[in-house]
Design a protein around this nucleic acid. Structure first.
Lengths: 111, 111
DNA sequence: CATCTTGCTTCTCTTATAGTAGCGGTGTTT
DNA sequence: AAACACCGCTACTATAAGAGAAGCAAGATG
């Protein structure tokens, strides 16, 4: 499957609106999780794989490719790392942590 | 597949941390998109389907089920609508629209 | 009665992801 | 040099998720 990028139609959207491309990109298994794991600093391919519970290397590789194409991560000597663009995105996603706590409570599974 | 909920292990995470369950839930095709479409008010099954470019009714149905279980949407007389919980989540996701514009620019596809 | 819309269900086919194995390269230790 | 340990992958098969078309039962409308 092709990497979803703003400016060109994505899955279920022929408008090419950036937000739709973003949902298409993030709405794939492991994508948000991977970015989340990289918040704490660069990680190697295998470290990432372990951090994600032994996720399939084939999928990991395709995700890493997509995220690189999307300029959200880059391959540095220390390993894969968020770009400043990716870092900004994660900062936008950060409030989700608080929300998910409330969510947990609402569902009566309040840890 | 089972609906990911906080408090129980989700795909790639045996911790049951709410944020992981959230990523698991949102990291599925159409999920974020559906919530996004409901921001503007309640929509019927078929309206939603059209809004999402004719997405498969089978998938739509399972997503709606999942989102109801997760208390993010509910079935009202006017159609499917965000719960207050779902509405709060969308407010947290709203800054993504701005970010995606910057993203678009960075990729040189500035609309 | 006939016709429309709505919320689905059922079916088959294709695509995405999981899971295991292993390669070639680099660096370090013996 | 040989052995090991790591690295970023690639190739393969098996299963699960999603696409796409058809249609059905229930309710409203003519």
């Amino acid at each position: 499957m092709t990497t979803p990028l703003p400016g060109r139609p994505s899955r279920g959207s022929n408008s090419g609106q950036p937000i739709m491309a973003l949902f298409d990109l993030l709405g794939r298994r492991w994508t948000m999780r991977l970015l989340w794991e990289l918040r704490s600093g660069p990680k190697s391919f295998r470290t990432l794989q372990e951090a994600c519970g032994g996720m399939s290397p084939s999928v990991l590789n395709t995700r890493l490719k997509d995220l690189r194409k999307s300029l959200l991560i880059e391959n540095q000597p220390q390993g894969y790392a968020l770009t400043s663009l990716g870092d900004h995105l994660m900062k936008k996603l950060d409030p989700l942590r608080d929300w998910s706590e409330d969510w947990s409570t609402a569902l009566g599974k309040s840890d």
